[in-house]
């Protein structure tokens, strides 16, 4: 555990963010349509219609895109 303690403590926090996203999903679908949203500490910190756009915005804010949750919000359900 000690070797990866830094990663695992953030993983726990991001799991809480993901649970928050799951609870808020119907509200988020009313607010955003066909947009990527970045989530950190149960807050939307940025949005963009393109993945490359939201990555660029996060980098401009000196936020590592891999350190936050990025989700695509659409009113249209998708199946794999």
């Amino acid at each position: 555990m000690a070797q990866y303690a830094d990663l695992l403590s953030i993983l726990k926090l991001r799991n809480e963010d993901l649970e928050w996203y799951n609870q808020e999903l119907s509200n988020l679908k009313n607010e955003y349509h066909d947009e990527f949203i970045a989530i950190n500490e149960k807050k939307i910190i940025d949005t963009d219609s393109r993945m490359e756009g939201i990555i660029r915005k996060l980098k401009q804010k000196k936020i590592d895109p891999a350190s936050v949750i990025i989700k695509f919000i659409s009113k249209i359900d998708a199946i794999l």
Binding site: Y4, L7, L8, L11, R14, N15, A66, S67
Partner: peptide
């Protein structure tokens, strides 16, 4: 979390 030295990945989530 993801870890890969060759890809320089040290990603918490």
């Amino acid at each position: 979390a993801l870890v890969c030295k060759k890809l320089r990945l040290h990603v918490p989530f």
